[in-house]
Design a protein around this nucleic acid. Structure first.
Lengths: 243, 243
DNA sequence: CGCAATATTGAAAACGATCAAGGGTCGTGG
DNA sequence: CCACGACCCTTGATCGTTTTCAATATTGCG
């Protein structure tokens, strides 16, 4: 479905790179020493439940998608992972999810201590993993609500607003309300349970309605306030804990 | 939405009761000593993110539902919890979920060690919580796929087959393939993202099609094999890890 | 420059929601 | 014992949304 583009490359991750994480995350995650940094190109598979042994992966920069294929040939996106997110746990194996890079991505890789009873693990490390899993569950719970009980406009609006909120204030240009977004319309459709064609129509309606524009990999909120009202998006769902 | 029927009652949970858990679960969960047993009547609220302080709750017997209300007035069911499931974590607070009893229910309650950095916690306890969260994520991931990429028949078929698989072999009568199910059609609709009316029609179609019957709180598989094929249900998704 | 992936639009059809009305069951109180 | 209300189930008719199919741009990239 997504064409991989070569083998995984291992690189050095400089301190500067790690500090691309927000201050809070950096303080917390920097406890995770001994990880192996790796980078992936867009389209590459980072983790595949079928081939790979469980390990812990933290996304340092870039976008990744965790999805699964169904027997009927369709795909469902379980979540889009952003910098700071833990993108792999043994649960992905249970859930049969595959993680792929959507942009150039840097991850830190750790051995999966949760499978080895013998490993002595610091409570602090356990706490970090637990926290990440709780946040993931909160995101999944929100996605469930999105797909299950909202119409097409609300679903796509919610998804893009969620991503904007999780990314934090944009640093693209001054006075620009939006973000760089490597998703295709097919990705969005697979995330909100709609066909690609319909995502296209919904995005057009939003554009002509002066709500938001998504072209050439850039999402711009033309009127974020009105969009939030229209899809009734509650920002406090995602702040401050979930970001 | 569901009328509570009185205050929560605290009772003794005999060893016999705890052993209602499957052997594996019992062996594992019996490490959890010091919990407080409680029982709830159908319709009672077990945990409400708005009122309650985080704590860990394990379902010993009965059915519970974890759901959330959306600003647009609709409800989404995040999961149905069965015996052995951990039904409350701090993530429910993030995700704004409420847990209610669907039948008479017994739970074991523990303080939430994950919020208190000071608490010395055994790695074993951490492991149990982690395992439960992984299983919950796997279930949520499956529910996401169900709602997002399947039609009405497949969704309801999958849900009922999943519940049957998680419950294990029925002990109702010999040669009976089915289970006692305290869900209403509205519960099912809120779990799979369909209207109550449509759930009703789908169940009728399944009944007249000789696939399954759900009447008076009893789900009976009239032809489980054909149903599984029709909705292409892959049992290995749920066995053996997830049960 | 050319190919492959992605985006765009229209028309027709399928699917599920909604509205409306009625039926069954259970528990409670007169 | 029956009447009543609450809750849940059931069915028909209609409406609206979203899917599907098909054809045509457009974009990105080697």
């Amino acid at each position: 479905m997504v064409c991989g583009s070569g083998a995984c490359m291992t690189t050095q991750v400089s301190i500067g790179r790690l500090q691309a994480l927000s201050p809070d995350l950096y303080r917390q995650k920097s406890d995770l020493t001994g990880g192996i940094p790796r980078t992936y190109a867009p389209g590459e598979t980072i983790y595949d439940y079928e081939d790979d042994t469980p390990r812990l992966l933290f996304l340092v920069s870039g976008w990744a998608v965790s999805s699964k294929m169904l027997p009927n040939g369709t795909r469902i996106v379980v979540e889009f992972a952003l910098r700071g997110d833990m993108i792999s746990t043994p649960s992905l194996e249970l859930a049969r999810e595959t993680v792929q890079a959507l942009s150039r991505v840097t991850v830190m890789e750790f051995p999966d201590f949760t499978s080895h009873a013998s490993l002595e693990v610091s409570p602090r490390l356990y706490r970090i993993v637990l926290t990440e899993m709780m946040r993931r569950q909160a995101r999944m719970s929100e996605r469930l609500a999105n797909i299950g009980r909202r119409d097409a406009l609300e679903r796509t609006g919610h998804l893009l607003l969620e991503l904007a909120t999780r990314l934090g204030p944009s640093r693209l240009k001054p006075n620009f309300d939006g973000f760089e977004c490597p998703l295709t319309q097919a990705d969005i459709g697979d995330a909100v349970g709609l066909s690609t064609v319909h995502i296209n129509r919904v995005l057009r309606d939003m554009r002509v309605g002066g709500l938001l524009s998504f072209r050439n990999g850039i999402v711009e909120f033309l009127d974020r306030h009105r969009l939030m009202e229209l899809v009734d998006f509650d920002e406090t769902y995602f702040t401050p804990h979930m970001i």
